[in-house]
Design a protein around this nucleic acid. Structure first.
Lengths: 208, 208
DNA sequence: ATTAAGTTTAACCAAATGGTTAATTAAAAA
DNA sequence: TTTTTAATTAACCATTTGGTTAAACTTAAT
């Protein structure tokens, strides 16, 4: 399917997604979105009445694609270590395919935290109930069994997700300061992380 | 010294810092900065010709205050574990006093990575030379001694900084999803982290 | 073929925005 | 005290920006 054959709505949606992710809500320009979609600006408003509504549509979709991936793994019945290992590798891989999404989501959420409330009934709530509480139980079980060191599940999950996401949000500094701006070194660094973060986490919690 | 007695330049600077940190460059408004500083908008341009120049002045200062704190600890001669412990506790404490700075710096750097280049000769370069390479040596020594597990210093430093910073960048999600929006729980969570992250890191790398 | 509905565009609009100017006031120098 | 310089303001300006309108075009139903 070529660009021409796509529905206008998709054309707009994709153009807007690029523009918003690249520049954020405040930096994005309706005219630029129209240009990227090769259509008239008025058509944007014909399909998505306002900039806010267009943004909301995109933020919703991006968020809904990104968050539930956490679930797939978290709610599996595999042993905790396996869960963690699979999660980290697949999550880093997912972000590598969409490296600007974390920065986008977190920035917009910081600028307007209320946005979460709108998603809460749907996605965020589900993530917590089905994902986190299930994970939380598994962690506490392992602690009781003595296979992992005592740790609050909240701390552990933030550590895991933080270690996956931070290298992408912090890319300019990491690549710039640590790797002297060398993109290749940074890419290798990322590639290694899939295994390294897993090792690091397991090491941190396993009782040896 | 009351607000009135401060120099006009400081008044503008502080007002602008608040506005930029809260809304980012794109979302900030010169009129709003003037209002916050209780002065005429033209006076902004009298002191700092353009929005860009005003922003640059602020970004520079914020960046220069935040980055070198990393140095103080990193270049000390204390044992690695002590270094790490002191760094994590003081860094998390520092961010707790300025919780929006990391999000601000990282967002603006992602929007315009070239900004780093301007700072590179000064701050960033120093951080790397005096801070990171010193830390890097210390890590490699401990590995050789067999006191810590083999790990690339680059991975370790990103892990340490990521674990310190991420809870602040990800606040809306953490507080919203994990703690059901309860600010108190989130604050306790942060407070615990000063000890928890240290334990976690040491556990992850120490050979037992 | 005609009508009706949906799609797309050019031109336009009002508000917001970064920035300027010319005049006024306050402070410092003579 | 007078003069010069710096600080401050109200009014203004050009451009950008999100959004609208009315007309033209396309497609499908009657």
């Amino acid at each position: 399917m070529t660009e021409q054959e796509k529905s206008t709505e998709d054309l707009i949606f994709n153009a807007a997604r690029e523009e918003f992710i690249e520049k954020g809500f405040d930096g994005a320009r309706m005219q630029e979105i129209a240009k990227r979609a090769s259509i008239n600006k008025a058509l944007l408003h014909y399909y998505f009445r306002t900039k806010e509504k267009l943004f909301d549509a995109i933020f919703d979709k991006v968020f809904k694609i990104f968050m539930p991936k956490v679930l797939d793994v978290m709610q599996s019945d595999a042993p905790l270590f396996t869960k963690i290992e699979v999660f980290i590798e697949s999550y880093i891989r997912l972000i590598m395919e969409n490296p600007h999404i974390p920065s986008f989501i977190l920035h917009e959420l910081n600028r307007n935290p209320d946005r979460l409330v709108g998603l809460f009934g749907n996605v965020a709530g589900i993530v917590k109930e089905k994902g986190f509480s299930r994970f939380s139980e598994a962690v506490n079980e392992e602690i009781k069994k003595g296979t992992i060191v005592p740790i609050q599940p909240e701390q552990l999950i933030v550590n895991i997700i933080g270690l996956c996401i931070f290298p992408f949000i912090g890319r300019p500094i990491i690549q710039g300061v640590i790797f002297n701006g060398d993109k290749l070194q940074y890419d290798n660094f990322l590639e290694s992380r899939k295994k390294e973060v897993t090792k690091f986490i397991i090491n941190a919690i396993a009782v040896k």
